[in-house]
Nucleic acid binder design. Structure first.
Lengths: 137, 137
DNA sequence: CTCATAGGTGCAATATACTTGCATTTGCAT
DNA sequence: ATGCAAATGCAAGTATATTGCACCTATGAG
């Protein structure tokens, strides 16, 4: 995972501002899906407006810097897109753990076959279950 | 897909009301993920309160009658749980198409192996891409 | 280096999606 | 038939996200 945020922003045609670097830092520090509120909390010293965070998340997603993650929660969660992986989500306590295993090429190909779709460019896969702690109880 | 809604409701310990049968009818008629607003619109003749729809969706999900679908949209979408499948979602026009192919047992097993998780009880898989119509343009 | 400008940010207001409290009604077991 | 728990409607409230507008700043052209 590169941390050349100024370079990344320039490459995507986005301005290199302190606010944006700070937001990218938060993503880089916490390797888990996070939402706008979480970033706001982490950066409360810097007093960054929540509106700005929402707008930044939106433009980062458009630029392909971030990926929106489907966690079936009320608010939207994001992760760095470069760090592709999936999640195990505990249906009891909500713990989220990432995993890299991601061999869905076969499923993908079969799904396309009889569909009205031409190409598959990305996917989201989440597994729901019980973490060891909750499985005991 | 059984349409014995009274029986289904009884089995789950839920009361068999006209409102609930109407909501199940909507799910049964449209074989695609739908949200509360959509149901409200479809049932506007019956003048069912939106609050009731939200509460019904919640209790149906708890009862396992419905499954929440992750479409990365602002509102929550649901489908009949008995009808397990996944989706191809066009990143351009938003078209959603279902598919049955779903052989992720292997991925699931490998993911569990080095995790803090004990069991996997469900999953969500969405493929993003371009439908043939949008691929042309 | 300076300056113009497009893009970024903050504030206030607004919209959307959903939830809660409470009073009333209704399905259903007895 | 009837009593009660569950379901529903209404009004208000909360959480999450968006928009309009004024001001600010990074960046590239000169």
């Amino acid at each position: 995972m590169s941390k050349d945020f100024p370079g990344l922003l320039k490459e995507k045609g986005l301005k290199n501002t302190p606010t944006r670097r700070a937001i990218l830092d938060v993503f880089s520090a916490d390797c888990k899906p996070i939402n706008a509120e979480y970033i706001h909390e982490k950066l409360k010293k810097s007093d960054i407006n929540l509106v700005t965070i929402y707008r930044t998340l939106e433009s980062f997603e458009e630029a392909g810097i971030l990926k929106r993650v489907s966690l079936n929660k009320a608010s939207s969660y994001y992760e760095l897109a470069a760090n592709h992986h999936h999640h195990l989500i505990c249906t009891n306590c909500g713990t989220v753990e990432g995993f890299k295993e991601c061999d869905i090429g076969d499923v993908s190909r079969k799904a396309l076959k009889d569909s009205k779709f031409q190409t598959v460019s990305g996917h989201s896969l989440e597994l729901f279950g019980k973490c060891k702690k909750c499985a005991k109880a």
